[in-house]
């Protein structure tokens, strides 16, 4: 594992990535970079390419063209797997097993053993506030609890980069707030987060946002900058502004020039 990739290089650099599935273009010349210790939000409607982008950043799939570098490695690569965490869209847990057993299983896969594993399980259980239910099977838990276990499984090995694919879908406002507090805690420790969501009200909590629509990156900037550039206070309005801008640009020129910025 290379340690040279630390600090100076951005943990994620996406350059001019195109991904096609048969005839559908899921990502269309996307370029962006994510900085260390920030929460980068990927915002866009369903089918805009958020999950495709996250899967390729994780090494699950290869871009049709363009380059992806994660933690200093050209993806897909197995070299950085142990330094990355992934919270999938559905809770993705073993329902017959208890919370502790799920955490222990994923912890072991990431190389944790013995006392270190026990410590990490205890720390994760207290972070997601499930210590009291540690030995309950997943199938007896509420949807919100499962979502917290799922987050715990992504955190168990203390990754420096975590991908969260719509982590707050289907959970109540109180828990959603708690999740964003966890994320802030992780950022403080220097952990980089990439969060996809289609809740525009969550956008303001990210350090920077990438707006995706039909596989195009409409804009990537801080929430304040995006609001200023669009002249809109509301993110929904801001998103529409950039969408319209992209459409007029497309109508004006034969070659579509989506905004590309880092």
């Amino acid at each position: 594992m290379s340690s040279s990739a630390h600090s100076d290089v951005a943990p994620i650099v996406v350059s001019d990535v195109v991904k096609r599935f048969d005839k559908v273009t899921a990502l269309d010349h996307v370029s962006l970079s994510v900085l260390r210790g920030e929460t980068f939000g990927l915002i866009g409607p369903n089918g805009s390419g958020k999950t495709t982008l996250i899967r390729m950043l994780l090494g699950l799939g290869r871009p049709t063209s363009g380059n992806i570098s994660v933690l200093g490695r050209k993806m897909p690569s197995r070299q950085v797997a142990s330094r990355i965490g992934y919270m999938t869209q559905s809770s993705a847990l073993y329902n017959e097993l208890s919370i502790r057993e799920n955490l222990a299983f994923f912890g072991t896969l990431y190389g944790l053993r013995g006392r270190r594993l026990k410590e990490r399980i205890a720390a994760t259980l207290s972070l997601v506030e499930l210590a009291a239910r540690a030995d309950s099977p997943i199938q007896t838990l509420s949807g919100g609890m499962r979502q917290r276990v799922s987050l715990g499984c992504a955190l168990i090995h203390e990754p420096e980069l975590i991908f969260l694919d719509e982590p707050t879908v289907g959970i109540d406002p109180e828990l959603r707030l708690a999740f964003w507090e966890y994320f802030a805690q992780l950022n403080q420790r220097g952990v980089t987060l990439v969060v996809s969501t289609h809740h525009l009200d969550e956008a303001a909590r990210c350090n920077r946002l990438g707006l995706l629509r039909f596989g195009r990156l409409l804009a990537a900037d801080s929430p304040d900058a995006l609001r200023a550039r669009s002249g809109q206070q509301d993110f929904e309005q801001a998103f529409l502004y950039f969408a319209q801008q992209a459409e007029t640009a497309e109508a004006g020129e034969p070659t579509p020039a989506a905004e590309k910025e880092a």
């Binding site: 994780l58 699950l60 197995r78 797997a81 142990s82 990355i84 809770s91 847990l93 896969l109 190389g111």
Partner: peptide, 14 residues
Amino acid sequence: SQGTIERLLVAPVT
């Protein structure tokens, strides 16, 4: 179907 294969494939498991 429950999505755990994604976690396995992303983990450092061959």
